[in-house]
Amino acid sequence: MIWTPHVTVAAVVEQARRFLLVERRRRARVFNQPAGRRYPLELLVDVI
């Protein structure tokens, strides 16, 4: 069995006691922290 990790990074961004949130609308309105993921065959230097 080959180990294939799934890499996801999220951030908490604060400035002057305010926080950056991302709004998503699917079934309901949801707020979350900014995040991203690395896709297969994508190099880390490509996402920086």
Rank of each mutant, 00 (worst) to 15 (best):
Q33D: 04
L20K: 15
F19Q: 15
T8N: 11
L20C: 10
H6I: 08
L20Y: 13
P40Y: 00
V47N: 02
R29K: 08
M1Q: 10
E42F: 01
R25C: 03
A35P: 01
I2E: 12
A16Y: 03
R24E: 05
V47I: 11
I48F: 08
H6N: 07
R38F: 04
A10N: 14
R26I: 06
F31N: 05
R25A: 08
A10T: 13
E42A: 07
R38P: 00
A28L: 01
W3I: 11
I2V: 06
T8M: 06
N32D: 13
R27V: 10
E14A: 14
R25I: 06
V30F: 12
R29N: 05
V13N: 06
V9K: 08
L20V: 15
P5T: 07
A28V: 02
I48H: 01
T4Q: 04
R17V: 07
V45D: 06
L41C: 02
R18T: 14
V7Y: 15
F31E: 01
E42Y: 05
P34C: 03
V22L: 04
V45A: 07
E42R: 12
V22T: 13
E23Q: 11
D46P: 00
Q15I: 11
G36E: 05
R25D: 05
V22G: 02
P5V: 10
V7T: 13
I2T: 10
F19T: 15
Q33C: 14
R38I: 04
A16L: 05
A11K: 02
L44A: 05
L44R: 03
P40A: 01
A11E: 09
V30C: 13
V12C: 10
E42G: 00
V47A: 11
E14P: 00
Q33G: 10
T8Q: 12
V47G: 03
V47T: 06
P5Y: 08
T4V: 04
T4A: 04
E14C: 12
Q33A: 14
Q15K: 11
R17H: 15
R29M: 03
L44N: 01
Q15T: 10
A10R: 08
R29H: 08
D46H: 02
V9G: 09
G36I: 08
L43Y: 06
G36P: 00
Q33Y: 15
P40H: 02
E23T: 10
L21H: 12
F31I: 04
V7G: 02
P5H: 07
R25E: 07
V45I: 03
R17Y: 15
E42M: 14
Y39L: 14
A28G: 05
L21G: 03
R29I: 07
A10S: 15
L41D: 12
Q15R: 10
Q15E: 13
E23P: 03
P5L: 09
A10Q: 09
R17T: 14
V13W: 14
L44V: 03
L41P: 02
T4K: 06
D46V: 02
F31A: 04
G36D: 01
R17E: 15
F19C: 10
H6Y: 05
F19S: 14
A35W: 06
Y39K: 13
I2F: 06
A35H: 08
A11Y: 06
A35M: 12
Y39D: 14
